[in-house]
Design a protein around this nucleic acid. Structure first.
Length: 465
RNA sequence: GCUCCCUUCGUCUAGCGGUCAGGACGUGGCCCUCUCAAGGCUAAAACACGAGUUCGAUUCUCGUAGGGAGCGCCA
């Protein structure tokens, strides 16, 4: 089998959204699986809407996800000479022609066809016309689409899809402003870059027969195609800003791990039996475009959150530490001014779904405790709580300052008082955090550090009145 | 309007002619327990509809309905 080459070809008109990210992931996996190449190409022929910032956002998104390309990024705006050359070759070969119709004429044509219930299409007015061109008109170049017969797309996910050439018209491949159009640029690029597998959103399925015809005119064998179903918002509508985060970098900012996002995305439209958790190695060895389903799916943040927590719980704390450090800084917390970030991760990762939440929950160990929840105080910092708190204080004062050491000290304090650990833990929890909710009491106390822990107990004792 | 695509629990999906229609997220209950979680067990929850083909259709075919895409000098 020949080398597999795939490409991801976004147009830089916005950030990298989750749908694009999944397309990129599938392209990446398909290439990796076969030991082939993954190529990044920026389709920026629309000078109106393409921006430098968007290019950077896409590059950043890809880098964050670790979807590294082997070749590129290539920019279509740098290949205009090549497209022009190919377009002229087609004209010279009689496979394309110049069309002098004005935009107004074309619009009138369309309006007329629509009024008659027909599919709006160019009528081929200049296809075989030998008339002298009207003066002063900057022509476009149109591709001579075969008038009869059918085009078969053997799609790897859809199967065999047949289009009638009679449904297609002569599309513009070169604009009057001297630039190539999308359907022409992709074909030239994919051919030049020897792409073997085009994997893209199924909004391109209808373009495929036109592109296949261009491939043939160019004397190339079309690549294999795989059209992916769309990703919709939770409400089933097309994904948009309205749905909250759609940019992959927004997920980074919200505290998601890149691998959690990748794992979530790989299961959107693709599956391998009942398996939910996939390492990168498993994804690359198991993925196949042929196993992708046909229907659109909805983006469900709850499942992403579950996956994110799964990876928070199972990954090595050291691997997550840099990410948490970044999130702490985002909250204006100096990560060096409190407990070790690895300890925070171990203490909190079963209780949060994102790194952002983890960082927020960690705040209590970095800043002085000044606010107490009224209900917590009323319930647990009662006169009766003074005894267990005092016992805990002296036990802790003598304790070895490790999680296990703190745990032993509190157990023995409770045992000496002849009460359950809960009688000591709850007042202590309020003393440490001002609230009734925190990680297990040993971690909660340990993370405060010995002197701060004792000081917080003293403050709490003052409230037991 | 025309062409093409899609349709299994609320959501992601398994299924590839005969299954009690399986798993996961979420939701409810129980257990565990120093709070909250996490974990374990458990419950409710789906084949859009109608014809055919067949001994037998979730599965194959054709319709209908409902979604989506394309029909640009956007990509």
């Amino acid at each position: 089998m020949s080398i597999v080459r795939t490409r991801f070809a976004p147009s830089p008109t916005g950030y990298l959204h989750v749908g694009g990210a999944r397309t990129a992931l599938f392209c990446f996996l398909e290439a990796r699986r076969h030991g082939g190449q993954f190529i990044l190409r920026v389709e920026d022929t629309d000078r109106e809407r393409s921006t430098e910032a968007a290019v950077q956002a896409i590059l950043d998104g890809m880098a964050w996800l670790g979807l590294n390309h082997d070749e590129g990024p290539f920019y279509q705006t740098q290949r205009f000479d090549r497209y022009r050359q190919v377009a002229e070759e087609l004209v010279a070969a009689g496979l394309a022609y110049r069309c002098y119709c004005s935009k107004d004429e074309l619009e009138a044509m369309r309006a007329d066809q629509e009024a008659r219930g027909l599919k709006p299409r160019y009528n081929g007015f200049w296809r075989d016309r030998k008339d002298p061109p009207p003066p002063g008109v900057q022509p476009v170049i149109r591709f001579k689409n075969p008038a009869a017969g059918e085009v078969v797309v053997d799609d790897r996910v859809r199967g065999r899809v047949v289009f009638d050439n009679a449904e297609l018209d002569d599309l513009v491949i070169w604009r009057s402003d001297d630039s190539p159009t999308y359907n022409f640029g992709v074909v030239v690029d994919d051919a030049d870059m020897r792409i073997t597998d085009v994997i893209r959103g199924d909004d391109h399925l209808n373009n495929t027969p036109r592109q296949i015809n261009i491939y043939r005119a160019l004397g190339h064998t079309p690549p294999r195609f795989a059209h992916l179903p769309m990703i919709l918002g939770p409400d089933g509508a097309k994904l948009s800003k309205r749905h909250g985060a759609v940019s992959v970098l927004a997920y980074r900012d919200d505290g998601f791990l890149p691998h959690a996002l990748l794992n979530y995305l790989v299961r959107l439209g693709w599956s391998h039996g009942d398996q939910e958790i996939f390492s990168m190695a498993e994804m690359t060895s198991l993925f196949s475009a042929a196993d992708v389903n046909h229907s659109a799916s909805r983006f469900d943040v709850e499942k992403l959150r579950w996956l994110n927590q799964h990876y928070l719980k199972t990954l090595d704390p050291g691997a997550i530490a840099p990410e948490l450090t970044w999130h702490l800084q985002q909250l204006g917390i100096d990560p060096t001014s409190g407990p070790a970030v690895e300890d925070l991760i171990v203490a909190l990762r079963e209780r949060v779904h994102t790194l952002k939440e983890l960082a927020e929950r960690a705040r209590v160990w970095f800043e002085p405790l000044t606010t107490y929840d009224d209900a917590a105080v009323a319930k647990h910092l009662t006169p009766a709580a003074a005894t267990p708190l005092t016992a805990a204080r002296s036990a802790l004062n003598a304790a070895e300052w490790t999680v296990a050491g703190v745990h032993r000290a509190l157990e023995s304090a409770a045992a000496e008082l002849g009460v359950g650990l809960g009688k000591v833990a709850q007042p202590l929890r309020v003393a440490m955090t001002g609230t009734q909710v925190s990680p297990s009491i040993d971690y909660t106390v340990y993370l405060a550090g010995k002197s701060a822990a004792l000081a917080r107990i003293d403050a709490a004792l003052g409230k037991c009145g």
